[in-house]
């Protein structure tokens, strides 16, 4: 049977659906019996969904800088 440490090390692969059927089954069996690992995997999923949002939106002035840079190049090339 897998240890909790092994489950944690393979959880990324489970979420990315990269495990063989046998490996997946071994994970499922462990997860059925271990609530700590169930929680770990559930929360890892939530974390991975959160990471794309960890960089906040740009400020008005940052957006303005980019747009002005683009516009100045457009008028140059005209």
């Amino acid at each position: 049977m897998l240890t909790c440490r092994e489950v944690v090390n393979s959880a990324d692969h489970l979420i990315e659906r990269e495990l063989s059927r046998r490996q997946q089954l071994a994970m499922k069996v462990h997860l059925l019996m271990c609530r700590h690992c169930r929680r770990y995997v559930r929360q890892l999923r939530a974390l991975l969904q959160a990471i794309p949002f960890m960089h906040s939106k740009a400020s008005d002035s940052e957006v303005r800088d980019v747009m002005e840079h683009i516009q100045s190049h457009q008028s140059e090339s005209r």
Partner: peptide
């Protein structure tokens, strides 16, 4: 697990970080 993960109270995962 010796010190298992805490129970995260998350309403929406996007807000987590």
């Amino acid at each position: 697990w010796q010190s298992p993960p805490a129970d995260w109270e998350t309403d929406t995962p996007e807000d987590l970080l």
